[in-house]
Write a protein that binds this DNA or RNA. Structure first.
Length: 203
DNA sequence: GAGGAGATCGTCT
DNA sequence: GACGATCTCCTCT
């Protein structure tokens, strides 16, 4: 399936990200990730996020201070923080809070909307295995061909090959749970997901 | 279906 | 030199 004849998704404003990551993580649900790969446009709807706070959050990469690796989440809001983990996976975050203050939101799962064949190809899966395509942070970056090369990219600019956009999607029902895959500060309920959506990583 | 462990390598101490 | 915001496969029930 190719992209439908829909009007070009409008990018979110930088101010959208210039706020507390908890609010951004919740309000990002239902928004779109737009990715251009060559001549193709891949579109996916955000259905699961996690907030990582700059201060008082031992699970966040920023908790031990600014390093070369994590400097994007200390920088201006609305930029991509992509890191490599466990020897084989990339994870995509967007920086939040004003320049100089750490904070970010991790994209944990998305729902494929357009360019599904290309996503399946990138994941080496059959198109029929839709539910396995993007239901995890490492999976969605693979499906959208996101790597360290995208680190630091501005996500509020529709001329970029990766950006975040508004959608007409009705306001979803949101559930809050503890974050997944972490050992520190694991009790904080900073994971947000769309209730009933089959593409979340874990219900 | 649930649970456990290995893979694998960039980054920081 | 140790560890990690994960994924997949394998085993057990």
């Amino acid at each position: 399936m190719t992209a439908r004849a829909r009007r070009k998704p409008q990018p979110l404003a930088t101010e959208f990200f210039d706020r507390d990551p908890r609010r951004v993580a919740r309000e990002l649900l239902g928004k779109l990730i737009v990715r251009r790969v060559g001549r193709q446009t891949l579109i996916a709807r955000v259905v699961e996020t996690e907030a990582y706070l700059g201060k008082n959050d031992l699970a966040a990469h920023s908790s031990s201070g600014r390093t070369k690796r994590n400097e994007v989440i200390f920088g201006p809001p609305g930029h991509a923080y992509v890191y490599f983990i466990y020897g084989s996976h990339y994870c995509l975050n967007v920086s939040c809070m004003p320049d100089g203050v750490a904070g970010g939101v991790l994209f944990r799962a998305v729902e494929p909307i357009a360019g599904i064949e290309a996503m399946a190809q990138a994941r080496a899966l059959e198109v029929t295995e839709l539910h396995r395509l993007t239901n995890g942070p490492g999976k969605l970056t693979e499906a959208l061909s996101i790597t360290r090369a995208d680190n630091g990219m501005k996500l509020t600019d529709a001329t970029q090959s990766l950006y975040l956009a508004e959608d007409d999607f009705p306001k979803p029902r949101v559930k809050t749970t503890p974050r997944i895959g972490i050992t520190k500060a694991a009790d904080l309920k900073l994971r947000y997901l769309v209730v009933g959506n089959p593409f979340v990583s874990r219900a």
